[in-house]
Write a protein that binds this DNA or RNA. Sequence first.
DNA 1: ATGTCCAAGGAAAACGTTTGCACACCGGTT
DNA 2: AACCGGTGTGCAAACGTTTTCCTTGGACAT
Lengths: 355, 355
Amino acid sequence: MADIKDVARQAGVSISTVSRVINDSKAVSPELKSKVNQAIARIGYSANSVARGLKIFKTNNIAIIITSVSRTFFASVLEGANNAADQLGYSMIIAETHDSLEREMQLVDAFASQWVDGIVLASSAYGNDPKTVQYIEKLQSLEKKGMRIPVITLEYALDSQYIDAVVIDHEKAAYKAVCYLINSINRKNIIHISLPKNHLMGRMRIAGYKRAFEESGLVYDENNIIAGDYTTYSGYKIVKQLLADNRKFDAIFCANDQMAVGAIKACEEFKILIPEQVAIVGNDDIFAASIVSPSLTSISVPKFELGATAVRRMHEIIGGDGTRKPRQIISLDTSFEERESTVRNAKRSLKYLEW
Amino acid sequence: MADIKDVARQAGVSISTVSRVINDSKAVSPELKSKVNQAIARIGYSANSVARGLKIFKTNNIAIIITSVSRTFFASVLEGANNAADQLGYSMIIAETHDSLEREMQLVDAFASQWVDGIVLASSAYGNDPKTVQYIEKLQSLEKKGMRIPVITLEYALDSQYIDAVVIDHEKAAYKAVCYLINSINRKNIIHISLPKNHLMGRMRIAGYKRAFEESGLVYDENNIIAGDYTTYSGYKIVKQLLADNRKFDAIFCANDQMAVGAIKACEEFKILIPEQVAIVGNDDIFAASIVSPSLTSISVPKFELGATAVRRMHEIIGGDGTRKPRQIISLDTSFEERESTVRNAKRSLKYLEW
DNA sequence: ATGTCCAAGGAAAACGTTTGCACACCGGTT
DNA sequence: AACCGGTGTGCAAACGTTTTCCTTGGACAT
């Protein structure tokens, strides 16, 4: 591969001039400029980004840390992020934590020493134990040669004054979904399959569930909250157990769609009619929600926009004058997709065809 | 962020010594070694990969170029690739072409000047027009400072003597699927919804379809091959048209699962019974195949392994002594998943619960 | 005592860029 | 004729590493 020296030699100019041409900085006389450009074209030169990165402290790489690509929710987020990155001239480095906070921390370190320009982070960190607090402090102060490496979290904000986030109002979305179950389709015994214990987003959704109950004058019963672990299997297993135990319920609100699919399959196995006997609502509106049968009513989260917005915001921060900007928390709206798991013969949107 | 100089100062040794410690190369006396390690721990130093990359011509980045993450097929491939990369100490840079060969070429150039250690490529290149031939030549000769940047293609091999590939025997898989339709469930009028015209993998599948017909003593009719464009919508539209035209057929073999899902939805709309009136077979066995209703019989491609194998092979090449290894084409086996779209009451595997 | 060899560690060059600085040139003022 | 300001160009330092080459000093043999 040719380097800048080769170009300089070919064009009969200095290295500096070549550099100025490829960065079209400063004034370079038209003649030299065209000589240089010709030389570049002739030998097929392309500036080396590693060397440039070292010099200017900018790699044009943005890292995105998610739990797993096979969680289709994150595949969509990733796609949005990558699209925006592409448009803005960044490469996207991807990494998966598989829900390990340990791993997440390692990855952050690795990316910092790789001098990525920013990190988009679907974090597993929450709570305020010393380890977490310390970790968040570190996230705030990641830097390369004095320049801050910005971090933006997805879905919820960290307990920090500095770290930006692109979030969803989980409490409100859950509240509305449960209100819908109570008021629109008249269910009173609603099971909530939540996220793993203490998970921040899980707690927000539980709060929404609780508020819906209280505002409707129903009693909130903690026993109706059962923690799942994101997977389809956990939803399946939990509902199967409930049915085996003869628990009475007429609706299930799941904290994500995968668990809701599991719930549907369990009901199917027990010949429970959906939605007549049990209505089911999921969360996220992943693609599977449209094609499962019955199709799944779900809180629709703008996944693509989540990723794209984070990257765009990152670009603003990076491109800025280097001064620390005031923290910004961008909140994205959800919508509600009513499908067959809550109303028989729901109008079938052809959304899934857009796949 | 501290650099190696800071460590050296702290530990009271030279830069070289620090470098030797972090690379545990050569002999460093135990005392100095521990002094250095303490200094590193104290100031939280971590070697900068950009500078190191520049020096040693190795970035530990592997690029993967696919058409789109939202094609869940590729999400699985990506996951496999990323898993392997993780284990071997690489970061994964991802990029999408959205089926544009133009874009693919740009990306390859960009990655080469980024000095990635290798490129895993789901290429859109096929045929032997001059432009393509030239492109393949370029792919063969990507290099950074005299070292070759290896390229490994996914799914099918390029027309090159040098570029490795991890492939599927598409012809055979299609052949077996169509034989199954003909012999096991007795269908004779089989539509094939193929890939965009001239696509290499599309042609391989058509060849398998054709061979199955000929070997069964049936006449192969070109009119039964209809080109789709990967999307669910195209499958839907094509089948709808066929039904509207009153075409006679008792089975459909789709070149991918997304189009097969579209086919199912179209049949459903026309109240065609699956599999009694029309049997449907897809290709890839993406997750949706398990959850759609009726569940979809499909050729199961080892997507995860496809990505993981490519990365592992890449590592072998990179880690080698730099001599050009003989080309290797690794062929992965498919299996056949029989589900409800070809046999009523197919045993329902709980595979989807492993999601 | 002198010489030889080896291990340990430092100095400095190199990797491919960008950029501050200096310099040379030129046209226009005094 | 001397000076000035601006413009275009090159030199060389710097970015943070790795690694070659060299120096030093000690162990050992003579």
